[in-house]
Nucleic acid binder design. Sequence first.
DNA 1: CATCATGTTATAAT
DNA 2: CATTATAACATGAT
Length: 265
Amino acid sequence: MPELAEVAFYAKAWHPAQGQTILRVHTGPKPRFFRHTPAAAFAPALTGRSFLDTRTHGKKLLFAFQNNLWLTGHLGMTGELLLAPPDHLPTAHDHLVLYTAHHALIFRDSRMFGAVLLDESPGPPPAWQALPPEILSPQFTAAHAAAALQRHPRSPLKAFLLDQTYFPGIGNWMADEVLFQLRLHPATLAASVNPSALRQALRTICQKSLQTIAVNWSDPPKNWLMTHRWKAGGLCPRCHTPLLRDTLRGRTACWCPTCQPQSPP
DNA sequence: CATCATGTTATAAT
DNA sequence: CATTATAACATGAT
């Protein structure tokens, strides 16, 4: 489910518990979810520390706790963060639940493509500091986009946009949205893409998504592909042509054959 | 029962 | 070696 804006939405879920002390920790029985940090490490590390704040980078989450403890999280395909009353009983997919005096902070994920891990360091963990520039950061320049495109010249743009090394936070629907707004077919080769136009489309889509979905899960503008791409028989919001779907690099791409024609060979 | 899903990564192929 | 393609992961919805 979660891409940039959905992750930003979930990141606020635990906010009411900011400043509160973790009194008790529940970890579920699935080893898969604790493949980075063993489940047994969470209760000793977190109990007694206060929850300070949350930040995001693309699809990644970082929670700061008192005394240099950091919890990194990824929501995978089905992860979600929830807040519940302090008597919450963990369900089968509540892999990590932190209890304060007033709340239960829940990390839920049915498919377990997501994960959590712990770090202890004076500042954010080294892996966090080494992350690439975010799309809305000043470092994400047209030159940066151009360099990225040149490194993967024969990659279909749709597949390339999913590379978190270059486009942190972009997922399947946002990549389709970028292609739609640029009027480019998903199979367009990266080398042929205008870096400035790509950067501008990425920034616009990230900004607007953060103003809508991330705030209250409201829909982005109706003239976006996003609100049409999942329904059967969906029509292009610009020209009302029936949308096409096909699998590209193992993911479903959705596009308008009129607005986004296949470029000539 | 078969297919599909808003993600990532190890491994294979070029 | 660098880039691109595929399969696998685990579960629920349709």
